[in-house]
Structure formats: C-alpha cells, structure tokens
C-alpha cells in the first residue's frame, strides 16, 4: 500500500523531462515532494497530495485489498504561470505514460479529473497549476 501511495512521486522523479525542469534541491533530491515543499526550496517544484476518500469496499476480500483507488493532486509550482503550465504538462504526460512500479499491484487505469487550474499563492508571487487524478490499481 505504501508503494501505491508513493507511486505518483516515484513516477515523476523517474521522468526525464520533469527532472530536467525541476532540478534538484540543496540536498540533491529531485524537487518532487509529498504533502508540502521544503521551506528553502526555489520554484519550479512539484507537490503531490493524496485526497482522502472513502474506501471502495468492492475491492476488499477479507484483509486483502484487491483493488485500490488513489485520488491525488499534483501542484506544479513555477515562478510564472507559463512555467507552472509547462511543468504541469510534463507531469501529466509522465503520469499517463510512465512506468508505475507498485508491485504486487498493477496500474489498471489513470485519469485526470477536470481541467488543471492555475491558482495564485497566498504567501509568495509563485504560481501553481493544480491537477487532480484518479488511479486504480489491482493485484
């Protein structure tokens, strides 16, 4: 289950174009973060958040989760809106075409929910483009 939760982050960190755009932070880590970015990191960077949802009981047999659904949001942060959009496009392509190594599960389906939305930031002049995805895995 943990592998699935980390799936989007791993896919984006393994994508050449995304890595090329975001680069690495001071610790040498690719700037794709779960939950929230590091405090001293400069844009562009990507933040992935899981959206809590009710478990799909149809995919549970005993203690075994045969089908797992993951809903997550990808926030692509840039210094300008254009930079944020370029990063959001790269992330979208990486998630749709990338290799999801979530053994023993396999990615059944991934889809973007609605159109990505550009949003301002409360604390900085940065711009973000948010996109929401629903991914379904089976074993």
């Amino acid at each position: 289950m943990k592998l699935i939760a980390e799936g989007p982050k791993n896919v984006l960190r393994e994508d050449g174009l995304v890595v090329n755009i975001v680069g690495s932070d001071g610790d040498g880590e690719t700037k794709v973060y779960p939950s929230i970015a590091k405090t001293d990191v400069n844009a562009p960077f990507v933040v992935i958040n899981h959206i809590p949802m009710i478990e799909n009981e149809g995919g549970v047999y005993g203690d075994d989760h045969v089908i797992v659904t993951l809903e997550f949001q990808v926030s692509s942060w840039g210094r300008t809106e254009q930079e944020a959009w370029i990063l959001a496009d790269a992330c979208d392509e990486a998630l749709m075409l990338g290799q999801w190594t979530v053994d023993p599960y396999q990615l059944m389906k991934i889809r973007r929910e609605g159109m990505p939305t550009p949003l301002p930031d409360r604390d900085t002049d940065l711009r973000q483009v948010q996109a929401r995805y629903m991914a379904r895995f089976s074993r």
Binding site: S35, I36, N49, P52, L119, Q130
Partner: peptide, 15 residues
C-alpha cells in the same frame, strides 16, 4: 482547501 506554497491542502470541501 487547495493549499499554498507553505501549507498542505486541507481538502475540507472535497472530503
């Protein structure tokens, strides 16, 4: 709801 560069989203409406 959607978070900021310094704060994770709360998703209070989405939840």
């Amino acid at each position: 709801e959607n978070g900021t560069s310094n704060m994770a989203p709360r998703y209070y409406m989405r939840r």
